[in-house]
Structure formats: C-alpha cells, structure tokens
Amino acid sequence: MFKRLADSSPAIAISVDGKTVTARAGDTVAAALLAAGIDHCRTTPVTGAPRAPYCLMGVCFDCLVTVDGVGSRQGCLIPVREGMKVETQLGRREAGR
C-alpha cells in the first residue's frame, strides 16, 4: 500500500509477532507496520474483526498493539527502537496471558 520515498534514514530492526521487520529511524510502530505491508494489527474485542491503523494521529485507537509486553498501546504515537518487540492483538488478549 505504501512505499518509501527514500531509504536514507538508518535501519532499525524490530520484531513483529516474532518475525524481524526492518523499520527506519523516525518510524512510529504503526508506520513501520504499514511500510512492511502488515495488513492488520489487531482484532476487535467485540466481533473479532481485523483492524489496521486508520488515522495515524492518535484519535482512532485502531492501531493498538502490544509493545514490549504492555498491551493496547497506540502504535501511531510510539517511535520504533532497536530490538522493540511488537505483538499484534487478538481480541481481549491484553491480560490474563
């Protein structure tokens, strides 16, 4: 869906559901997922429908992911860091795991 204008920024390796994804410095988690072509980042707690980032400006909460073990973080507000562990969220997976 998206391509990078230039790959000039330094590469940053993060893991998404255990797989290594190469992001770029300046990416947010949500942007890195979009750039990597990952088509959804969570399923909804109510019906299990897939959701992907929608607004990228912190208002829609559809880009919720688990970051380094903390659930329901807004992926569009969190910059990527080398070695960051991102997990997509299935329904109510936030606690009790």
Partner: peptide, 25 residues
C-alpha cells in the same frame, strides 16, 4: 469504513510527512 485498507486522507499525509511513505498501490 472499519476495514483494513481504509484510512483517512490525513493518515496518508502524516505517513508522507513523518516517514516519507507514499501510497503505492
């Protein structure tokens, strides 16, 4: 409007400004 692949225009603009991501498909 909740389907993956539906986003706001502002979202695409943010991706362009902040990450240099431009829509390709």
């Amino acid at each position: 409007w909740t389907l993956p692949g539906v986003m706001t225009a502002g979202a695409a603009q943010t991706a362009l400004k902040a990450q240099g991501l431009v829509v390709g498909g």
